[in-house]
Design a protein around this nucleic acid. Sequence first.
RNA 1: GGCCCAUUCGUCUAUCGGUUAGGACGCGAGAUUUUCAUUCUCGAAAGAGGAGUUCGAUUCUCCUAUGGGCUACCA
Length: 512
Amino acid sequence: MARKVRVRFAPSPTGPLHMGGVRTALYNYLFARQQGGDFILRIEDTDSQRFVPGAEAYILEALKWCGITIDEGIEQGGPHAPYRQSERREIYLKYALQLVESGDAYYAFDTPEELAAIRSEFESRGETFAYNYTVRTRLATSLALSPEEVKTRLDRGDQWVIRFKMPENEEVRMHDLIRDEVVVNTSTLDDKVLYKSADALPTYHLANIVDDHLMEITHVIRGEEWLPSLPLHYLLYRAFGWSDTQPEFAHLPLLLKPGGGGKLSKRDGDKMGFPVFPLKWTSPTGEVSRGYREDGYFPEAFVNLLALLGWNPGTEQEIFSMDELIAAFSLERVSKSGAHFNPEKARWFNAQYLKARSDEELGALFLPILREHGLETTPEKAAQAAGLIKDRATFVNEFWDLSHFLFVAPTEYAPKAVSKFWKGDIPSHIVELRALLAEVNDFSQAHTEPLVHDWILSREYPMGKVMNSFRLALVGESSGPNLYSICEFIGKEETLRRLDRAIETLGIPASE
RNA sequence: GGCCCAUUCGUCUAUCGGUUAGGACGCGAGAUUUUCAUUCUCGAAAGAGGAGUUCGAUUCUCCUAUGGGCUACCA
């Protein structure tokens, strides 16, 4: 009987989600939607020490911005509520105890200090300490102590943890949807802590397996950093007797720093020269990290570029809407090796989405920016301006720099352009041009462009020099969109005014 | 150190034993343009190394190297 697909994204609120985390959420989401399954958000806040205020709200907002919608979770509830592990704490002890009962786990009374001491002792001998079958019967555990002593310590309220009793020398054969078979010998593993009395909370391993089971998760799609604990998880399912409903696992390749040197991490902040977070984040200590949203990325572009970092459709298509991703995605086509993030390509993706947007949509985004510069203009005008410059922009936030001359006359003229073009006979040609344009009533590009060109040609004036001087007068520098489109945009009056001003400011060299 | 995973142009990747090893970003050149961009065309650029298996290996196996992950009462 095929179960309904149910996947979960289970972040820990220890800080903002970084782009690798968003990608994990995205792959889970794509898989769920494609399979007609459920996408669950579970908050794994079992580490009371590392909790960061605001992180949870950040995660929710980031997913929302990306268009990743949640079926069950802390906000929308669901049949397996609550979805925050700290609110499920009473569930876990019973399962930990069940494992002690069945002999798959045991109590350990070592304090963190004692363990640290043992560790450093081993290290001083050049050995590595592992809490496993070699030491568990010699340390303060329920395996070594008498039942009476254990009871005494428990009753006395001594601190304890419950550790998994990792079998000795057993080959665990595991299956991964991306990597196929993985085999590990249990003797290389240690007795992981499952539950700690200090805060009455489980560790990741226990909480994760219990909740995935209770929430009927069918596929666990998570980062590769979890692969080493997969044998433990397999063994836990077995110890609980849940092997028949154990989920399938898919371990995603990691997102690596561009130049190498490890996986992308939250700590990288924006010190890499590009954002590592979807949204801007201000830490409780006041540190600010850039976000893709605030940097001007469209969420669609961000999702698109993330999707293609570690997965590809096998075709040459690179631009995907969310719906197209849902249709095309498959875990089988996720690559096995880590992907270095390429900020240049990220920018390219955004430029593609920018060009694909209509002038009206872009105008609507440009309008508030114009307002910030003290300009009240119409949506039509903003859209028209956007249309003139969108081909040369990567982000909407570059629009002002690329088009301010459409709204404000230049007050200065780029010296290099002046010395290059505003010399010889050219300024006097511009005076003639001014007179020509003063007679023109139709200032549309379609009308002025052939008119002026024909005039220049008929006079046998140098096209490049005249045009560049003309541009210098209107724009103040020697770059920008088609000049006649600028004339059309600013209109006859303003065009003549700018010509007058340039002539006045730059002067006319005495003709010989 | 131990365990695990990985390895095709600088980067993201295609190839599921037989290809001139394809595409994209970036880079270079050219075309278009009044300019800067855009766009278009072209170009440089890769199978880590060594053994096997095979008629034939980028593709399968092993070894080495390299990269990465894990090795907490963190996730």
